[in-house]
């Protein structure tokens, strides 16, 4: 009894989340010998982030790849994946994504009718300004900065001293362009795909947190599959973690090269700036570690990572 699963996601086809979906489709169809097939509906066709989150929960959409932050109000432990400054680089992200600590958090979603098969990445977040390049914490002070709507980000950026400004994503480009906003915290691939390089004056590689996405399947749907099909899905989800995350890293390199060609300055923060940022984030990290032991466990594990570059 072969099964076809409908997977909806909210981004365009150039985005790493779409890449995750494509890799999963390829892997699961190969491993299951076509017993499990996946139909991808990209670009919000089946709904935006919130609708897809609810859709998989209710079973009106079989599967999705969707930002982890969309689930943070459902299970606060999920904020662990984006604790500011916790994971140093893409290699570290792979380690954490495959860790038992991550699995423990993901399993919580089963309480909400969803099975999280894995967690992938949408890109490390940096700081793009439309004014002067930012080279110190002082430079960031008071900048009207678009922050994705999430409590933890708001707390983190307030601690840094920027003026965190929630804004509908569709208005951000114009707002940056006209100066309604001074800055945006964003991943490099979006600077490319959303053409932010047309308006950005400088990018500072602050790398505060990743933008992870869960690969989710409705629990009832998953339970209705044969053990072989379930195993194929789990295996496919596991084997694509590293190649997917490394592909994002590679994409970042390409975008950096492109920014260089366009003459947009890319600032690598000094050690002093990094230390200032970490110090600003520290109390917020502590505050969120205290919310749930799973966050504390995840954070402790992340602290043991050593940057791959060293």
């Amino acid at each position: 009894e072969p099964v076809t699963l409908r997977l909806g996601h909210p981004v365009f086809e150039a985005h790493p989340i779409h890449d995750t979906a494509v890799r999963f489709k390829e892997a699961v169809e190969r491993i299951s010998n076509g017993d499990v097939t996946v139909e991808i509906y990209p670009a919000r066709q089946l709904g935006d982030v919130k609708e897809l989150a609810e859709g998989v929960q209710f079973g009106t959409v079989d599967m999705t790849v969707n930002s982890t932050s969309a689930y943070a109000t459902l299970e606060p432990a999920i904020d662990a994946f984006q604790l500011p400054g916790a994971i140093p680089d893409y290699e570290g992200f792979v380690t954490m994504a495959k860790s038992a600590e991550a699995r423990a958090i993901m399993d919580r979603l089963e309480n909400h009718g969803m099975v999280a098969l894995g967690v992938y990445d949408g890109g490390l977040r940096h700081f793009m300004t439309v004014g002067e390049p930012v080279e110190s914490l002082e430079d960031m002070k008071g900048l009207k900065t678009r922050v994705a709507p999430n409590r933890m980000f708001l707390d983190a950026w307030s601690a840094v001293g920027v003026n965190p400004t929630p804004m509908a994503y569709g208005e951000v480009y114009s707002a940056l362009e006209t100066g309604t906003l001074d800055a945006v915290e964003i991943n490099l691939t979006s600077i490319e795909s959303e053409k932010y390089y047309e308006i950005g004056k400088a990018v500072t590689l602050t790398g505060q947190y990743f933008w992870p996405g869960f690969l989710l399947v409705n629990k009832n749907k998953f339970d209705s599959l044969t053990p072989e099909q379930q195993a194929a899905m789990r295996q496919a989800a596991d084997e694509i973690v590293e190649p997917q995350v490394m592909a994002v890293k590679e994409l970042d390199t390409k975008v950096l090269k492109r920014l260089d060609e366009l003459g947009i300055p890319v600032v690598t923060p000094s050690d002093a700036f990094k230390a200032e940022l970490a110090a600003a984030f520290a109390p917020v990290v502590e505050q969120y570690e205290a919310i749930d032991p799973l966050i504390a466990d995840f954070s402790a594990k992340a602290k043991m990572l050593t940057p791959a570059a060293q």
Partner: peptide, 14 residues
Amino acid sequence: ARYVLDSSLFWSEE
């Protein structure tokens, strides 16, 4: 709040 007070509201849009 954003333009004059330099302190954006985080609840207003929602």
